[in-house]
């Protein structure tokens, strides 16, 4: 399903508490959210549980989603990531990491600090295909397999500094692509 359709559905959920629209969102997102959680190392049962929590969060927070700030998939990814971190922590300090980093920009911010505006992440998808293989492998290890910088360094037998500099390069490329798309 494309980003525009998904964005429209979330709008219906936010404005009208539209259960039917939410049902459609559920069908589009739940299987991928579950797939993401499994890849991050959650077992079948935990992935199912956390997936339900993520989808519930999407309903609860629909009114906070702002398409001018970023794509729906990026937002859903953030919620999924936070939920999987909360789940993974056995000994939980009493704070939720789910404080939103998607807050609208302050009016007083200067123009270069203004929010990224992107209508869809189509450009980013194509940018991802242009990322050199040595950076792409690091993107996948971090974002999909939930490996830390030092875990990646030891798996690839690379110095930590090299892993960090490849992350910077990959990140800069993505960032540039998003900004050009504004």
């Amino acid at each position: 399903m494309n980003e525009a359709r998904l964005t429209n559905l979330i709008k219906l959920v936010a404005q009208n508490l539209d259960r039917e629209a939410f049902g459609e969102l559920f069908d589009a997102l739940a299987p991928r959210v579950k797939g993401t959680l499994r890849k991050r190392g959650l077992d079948r049962e935990a992935a199912e549980d956390v997936m339900q929590d993520v989808l519930l969060s999407i309903w609860i927070k629909a009114g906070l989603f702002d398409p001018a700030r970023g794509s729906l998939m990026g937002w859903v990814y953030t919620i999924t990531r936070n939920a999987s971190i909360d789940r993974a922590r056995r000994q939980k300090p009493s704070v939720s990491l789910d404080l939103i980093e998607w807050e609208p920009a302050d009016q007083s911010e200067s123009s270069e600090d203004r929010v990224l505006r992107l209508s869809a992440n189509e450009n980013l998808k194509s940018a991802m295909t242009l990322v050199p293989a040595d950076q792409l492998v690091i993107i996948r290890m971090a974002f999909e397999q939930d490996l830390s910088q030092s875990e990646i360094a030891s798996r690839l037998k690379l110095p930590l500094g090299t892993v960090k500099s490849r992350m910077r390069l990959a990140y800069a490329r993505m960032r540039k692509c998003i900004e050009e798309n504004q």
């Binding site: 049902g23 991928r32 991802m128 993107i139 974002f143 998003i178």
Partner: peptide
């Protein structure tokens, strides 16, 4: 937010795992 967009692209490409009807009913 730009970093989350990378995750968003990967989420979009993710394998879809079957989700049961009872699971959807529970969330609804």
């Amino acid at each position: 937010v730009a970093a989350s967009e990378i995750g968003g692209v990967l989420l979009g490409e993710q394998d879809e795992l079957a989700v049961g009807v009872e699971s959807k009913a529970a969330v609804m």
